[in-house]
Design a protein around this nucleic acid. Structure first.
Lengths: 233, 233
DNA sequence: TCTCCTTTGCGAACAGTGTTAGCAAAGGCT
DNA sequence: AGCCTTTGCTAACACTGTTCGCAAAGGAGA
């Protein structure tokens, strides 16, 4: 266990008793269990049961639960299918965000990951791709990184908002409170809200991403079109 | 314990032994402890110790740890100081977001709250204010709600990014991995990143919020007054 | 003042969590 | 075969949220 980061740690030395499970097997089992039961219900013992083994056995492949979550997050980042940049950075990033939203909806536990994970090879690959897409954009590197962080934040937020059943009891409690306090008249603007417009962020997502990115990365150098066919095209 | 939502539950019946601590006292102690040690270290016993009592005593005022966190979040929402709308919705919302960032930096545990809390009276008050600011904006209600959700998401993300010490060990592990894998040459765009531009989202925050809101709520539909374009003083 | 009566405070206990230590098992090498 | 390294597993530890039963503390009525 020499390196303190999992991405640099050797997976098996080849000598001695051969391992029955690999680091990837454990990760896959954890992803599967989290897909089904959520991250809060993901215990070391449940993951171990998924593999038909005992709880403490996982610590042969993973040093902690947090590290296992890092592995899961990077595994999810590996589900991005990265295409060659088309020259239209905005279209490319919107498509990437749509893909990210699909990944988050496939793995709803991603929205429950609270602490920023230690980015692994797949996450690095996505970051590299984003920077490649934005390579010829005139913005500063800091602005690009901020835009990328905002992108990820929005993906997570939308996935969470689109999750129809995060917790039925809490949703019901929220509705009960609103039904009790809104008619009192202290919140006229909330009372006047169109009740049908609170839930359809599915198809508006690409437009939102497009608007946000256009606001964050204005190509004020010349053409303000959303597609800037620069350089190799 | 009739109502299943804390905001509708009576605080004390007046008869019988008078309570030594109130719901607000417990909330304040929890906020204080979370400010100091973070949300992960906030245990019922630690909050109780803050009040000089035992662990199970808190359940006289709060039904669960989750409900306590709801109370804490609404307490933080109560720290917003809401001014009368000036007529410049963009300036008003940017100011509100700056205020939200300050609140998040005062209470860093807010970024650790994973599940959307059951919004209480203070949260409702802020929502009402946002809708009042946007009352004359020609966007649909759905767009306004999305913009508000995005705003809160960005505040949380920025607060998390600006936290200089989220976990020194993880940050060091991340740096070690990058130092090992970047020089291999597989990530040319990441390698070419300006190392100084990765960390100063403090002063850029208002501009980011302004750009995002401008992208999300374009006032193209009517004769709505616009605010100072960029980099306002 | 002395009871009732309601409500609160508190400690012990329960199931469940992440994590660790010690020991048995299982293959590759000589 | 025999050694040796590595793995799997069980039991245990400290800790968590939560519940339960009982003692304590005040107000209302006599």
């Amino acid at each position: 266990m020499s390196p303190e980061v999992v991405w640099l740690r050797a997976t098996s030395s080849g000598v001695g008793r051969p391992p029955r499970h690999t680091r990837e097997t454990v990760t896959l089992a954890a992803v599967h269990a989290a897909d089904r039961d959520g991250l809060a219900a993901l215990t070391m013992r449940s993951v171990a049961a998924e593999l038909g083994t005992g709880g403490g056995s996982l610590y042969r492949h993973v040093t902690s639960r947090e590290e296992l979550i890092d592995l899961m997050v990077d595994h999810a980042a590996g589900e991005y299918v990265l295409h060659e940049p088309t020259g239209h950075w905005l279209d490319d990033l919107v498509a990437l965000a749509v893909q990210g939203l699909e990944i988050h909806r496939r793995h709803l536990w991603l929205t429950e990951v609270v602490t920023a994970p230690v980015v692994g090879p797949h996450g690095l690959r996505v970051s590299e791709h984003v920077m490649a897409v934005l390579a010829e954009h005139p913005a500063h590197d800091g602005q690009k990184l901020v835009a990328y962080a905002v992108l990820n934040s929005l993906i997570s937020s939308f996935a969470r908002a689109m999750d129809s059943a995060p917790d039925p009891e809490r949703a019901q409690a929220q509705a009960a409170y609103l039904a009790e306090v809104i008619p009192r008249g202290d919140h006229p603007h909330l009372a006047r809200l169109d009740p049908g417009s609170t839930r359809q962020p599915d198809d508006v997502f690409p437009d939102v991403i497009r608007g946000v990115l256009r606001g964050l990365l204005p190509s004020h150098a010349g053409n303000f079109r959303h597609s800037t066919p620069h350089g190799s095209g």
